[in-house]
Write a protein that binds this DNA or RNA. Structure first.
Lengths: 257, 257
DNA sequence: TTTCATTGCGTCGTTATGACACAATAATAC
DNA sequence: GTATTATTGTGTCATAACGACGCAATGAAA
């Protein structure tokens, strides 16, 4: 396992060990307090937030590079992730952007430095259990925080577009991807699961019909415990029957939402 | 518009105007005689077939590069295409492959030539009207032909894997993508449309229930003509109401298949 | 002990779905 | 020119799924 490189090292010698013109960005989804959240980095010397990203070593599988970035930002080793799109418009790489940021950081970059090339970026989205994540900024950022999906206005470069595309993809793949198991803790309540679906879909669902339908799939089992402490009636806890869940997702859950 | 380059030019000077380490491959779907087909190239000096592909100019949008490749292979200018995956395993670029092929073609390549780098390839799938396509081989191939999806065993490098991924993606996006309008001629019969769905899904559907459901969406209108010439009762012709079709696809067609 | 929002469990009418029957039709065989 | 045959157009029927809603049970707070 390689240690994280300093910015200076990356700028000066990156061309030697990174793939040229290629980067990746991660949209890391989490679910907390009934909100769908994304892990963002606050950039040094700029009033902008950005998606966690990185470069790919010359002999590294892109997927592994994504796993590496995910590990560095969240501390997690076993993460569900899916590549969802490549962003390849020439206009997305504005040289001014980077050289200005780096100058503010006291780093001089020559005009032909590899970091100022045109970059293609591969987008990955990840589904993680909010509670187990320890957000960790990288070398070029001063903070790493969860942000509510619906509160995000602008991001660095084309990252807002990347985020929107990730969300669109997630919606389209809803019936093929283990959102419930990956975004919720082991034990969860029915209202929590429903809220998760509602925030991803961006619309309200009927409480009773949702429960009937989700249970009819047969991969969710009710436990004998309830979640006490809420302000009202204690809801039952549920958990996934992972074998059945996986099998159902392979075919795709039947029906729309 | 740039003319197609010769192989020699590409090898010798490609590094000057192409993005390094980046290529694209196209899975071009067509529908003919009740079979879902893909456009393949038979490679020079090798008993293999490959997907049409190409490189990306340094200032070119990847999407445009895909459009360019599609135009060169099919003669079509207005094509529906979707980027579906990036293939980035280091093992997919085997140097032997290319240098052997090129040697057989009488072209010598030095060990550090850019064409022997590791390559990442962006996969696009396209939906085209079979009847309007004029298959055209490229510089490195001797033939360009339609092949039945279900008859394809092996392909060049990892192209079979790319093809399988495209097909999987198409299935998953079935309710969001205008397969009918793009793969069929303007006027088509109900059995033709049904066969299209059946071959993509890889399973049989009930004739009468299919018709009821597809018509209930409301974006297919029956014409007053029938398709004569078949061995039996002449079926009605239908065509799409494109406005309604587009609108329905934006939401995703409701229900599964 | 009462209040109140939430949860668990149901009902009811409508719509969608899967399985199937039967008549109409166009080319072909006789 | 008539019969044959495979295919298409239309409809039925029982069942399952779906959307909208009612109401009692619960647990914390008033």
């Amino acid at each position: 396992m390689k240690r994280e490189l300093s910015i200076k090292e990356t700028i000066q010698r990156g061309a030697n060990f990174f793939m040229p013109s290629l980067s990746l960005d991660c949209v890391i989804f989490g679910f907390h307090e009934n909100e769908l959240k994304v892990l963002l980095l606050k950039m040094k010397n700029a009033d902008t937030w950005a998606l966690p990203g990185g470069f790919i070593y010359k002999e590294e599988d892109i997927e592994n590079a994504a796993i590496r970035v995910l590990r560095e930002r969240t501390g997690l080793h076993d993460i569900f992730l899916r590549q969802f799109h490549v962003f390849g418009q020439p206009s997305r790489s504005e040289k001014k952007f980077h050289s200005n940021l780096l100058r503010k950081d006291g780093i001089k970059v020559s005009k032909d430095n590899w970091i100022l090339q045109r970059f293609i970026t591969v987008g990955y989205y990840a589904l993680v259990d909010f509670a187990t994540v320890t957000p960790e900024p990288d070398q070029s950022s001063v903070a790493c925080e969860w942000k509510d999906i619906y509160s995000i206005q602008d991001l660095f470069m084309d990252h807002k577009h990347i985020l929107d595309t990730a969300l669109y993809t997630l919606r389209m793949q809803l019936n093929y991807v283990p959102i419930g198991h990956k975004l919720l803790p082991q034990k969860f309540t029915m209202p929590e699961l429903q809220k998760l679906y509602e925030t991803i879909l961006g619309k309200k669902l009927d409480r009773r019909n949702f429960q009937r339908r989700i249970l009819s799939f047969g991969f969710i089992k009710r436990l004998k415990e309830t979640r006490k402490g809420g302000a009202h009636k204690a809801p039952f806890l549920y958990s996934f029957d992972l074998k059945k869940y996986k099998k159902a997702l392979e075919q795709g859950l039947q029906g729309g939402w």
